[in-house]
Amino acid sequence: MTVSSDALARPRAPVGERGFKYLLIAPSVFLLLAIGIFPLLYMLVVSFVGIDMMAEDWSFKGLANYKAAFADARLWQALGHTLIITAVALPLELLLGLAMAQLFLEKFPGRQIFVALLVLPTVVSPIVAGATWSLMFDNRYGPINQILGWIFGKEMPLLWTVDPTLVYPAIIVAEVWQWTPFMFLLLLAALSNVDKSQLEAASIDGAGYWMTFRKIVLPAIWPVMAIALLIRALDLFRIFDIIWALTKGGPGTMTETISVFTYVKGFTQFEISYAAAVALIIIVLLTVAVTWMLKKIEIAR
């Protein structure tokens, strides 16, 4: 088939339809602005005043809320907790997902059924996933301690959602359980699309498994992997539901993440202006991080 350069050129509205294209986007853009931008501007204003549970004080407080936020150790700890969870869960999900994708890459009878079943954790509501794991982790009636009891030959009444040494493993197990299948599905699709003839050429050239993986498979699946990592990193950064169901940020504030912290400040302690400042800081931080990540991916391609 010949594709003339004409066909590749930039599409444009044919004759008589120049207004049409704007008519089509108008309602969506309007709604996104109405829900996304105006409240944001409103919040910006709120972050410069002093509204809290006690008083609706609309007088200008300058950067007081921002100063307070930067000086608030609890906020930085929350950021730290968020980053720890991300730094542990993300590589785990990636490696487990990749290993599973390798396992299910070749066709064998029943493969489709396994894949279909493995999807299920990912589509469960995260709050339900959290609730499910809180049932699983129950110190007395949950199956986890029971199984550990069999393994160690004695009762294991571990307080997974309370014991400071166990809360993080509990959260990460739940998170990894829910989202590894996501990684798995995407990587399986990416691996299935790797050009078989390239693999054959590599094996004829005598390349070993790791060599082939690094030089051919990895570059081929990287675009999908990068997007999977980006989606998951963003999800992990805003993690809320699973923690809310398992620990509500406790014990104390030990597992409080950015989202949980902001929620608590804004909606249970009603430090409205302060929470507004924190939310804006999060948006700025995230925008910087996402832009940076997108650049990284671009460069890698």
């Binding site: 010949t2 003339s4 350069s5 004409d6 066909a7 050129a9 444009r12 509205a13 044919p14 004759v15």
Partner: peptide, 17 residues
Amino acid sequence: SGCGKSTLLRTIAGLEQ
């Protein structure tokens, strides 16, 4: 390829302005 013949035809058709 690229001589503008398809563009010309599409302009006649009104698919291009």
